Computed example of a mutant assay.
Amino acid sequence: MAVERADRDGRERAAALSGGGTPARGPRGRLDQPRTPRRRLLPDYDPEAFARFSERIARFLGTGRFIVWMTLIIILWVLWNIFAPEAVRFDEYPFIFLTLMLSLQASYAAPLILLAQNRQDDRDRVTQEQERKQNERSIADTEYLTREIASLRIGLGEVATRDWIRSELQDLLRDLADQGVLPPPEPGRGRDGSNRP
Rank of each mutant, 00 (worst) to 15 (best):
V3Q: 06
V3H: 02
V3A: 13
V3L: 03
E4G: 07
R5E: 13
A6M: 05
A6D: 12
D7M: 05
D7V: 00
R8N: 07
R8I: 02
E12D: 04
A15G: 01
L17A: 14
G21K: 13
P23T: 01
P23S: 00
R25N: 13
G26V: 07
G26T: 14
G26Y: 10
R28M: 02
R28G: 09
L31S: 02
L31R: 12
D32M: 01
Q33M: 05
P34Q: 01
R39Q: 10
R40T: 13
L41D: 11
L41A: 09
P43H: 00
D44L: 01
P47G: 05
A49T: 05
F50C: 12
R52M: 00
R52Q: 09
S54L: 15
E55F: 14
R56C: 15
I57D: 05
R59G: 14
L61I: 14
L61F: 00
L61M: 05
G62W: 04
G62Q: 11
T63I: 01
T63M: 05
T63P: 03
G64A: 08
F66L: 06
M70P: 01
T71N: 04
L72R: 09
I74V: 15
L79T: 06
L79I: 15
N81D: 01
N81E: 04
P85Y: 10
E86F: 03
F90V: 10
F90M: 02
E92N: 15
Y93I: 03
I96S: 15
F97Y: 12
M101V: 06
M101F: 11
L102C: 14
L102Q: 12
S103L: 14
Y108L: 15
Y108V: 15
I113E: 12
L114M: 10
A116K: 03
Q117K: 09
Q117N: 11
N118H: 08
N118S: 08
Q120I: 03
Q120D: 08
R123H: 09
R123N: 06
D124P: 03
R125N: 13
T127R: 15
Q128P: 02
R132Q: 11
K133M: 08
E136R: 09
R137I: 02
A140H: 04
T142L: 09
Y144E: 12
Y144T: 05
Y144F: 10
L145Y: 09
T146C: 03
R147S: 04
E148M: 14
L152N: 05
I154D: 04
G155C: 03
G157A: 03
G157P: 01
A160K: 08
R162L: 11
D163P: 08
D163H: 10
I165W: 11
E168C: 02
Q170S: 07
D171Y: 00
D171C: 00
L172K: 09
L173G: 08
R174C: 11
R174L: 05
A177E: 14
D178L: 07
D178H: 15
Q179W: 00
G180L: 08
V181E: 13
L182H: 05
P183T: 13
P183V: 07
P183S: 15
P185I: 09
G188T: 11
R189C: 00
R191K: 01
P197S: 06
P197N: 12
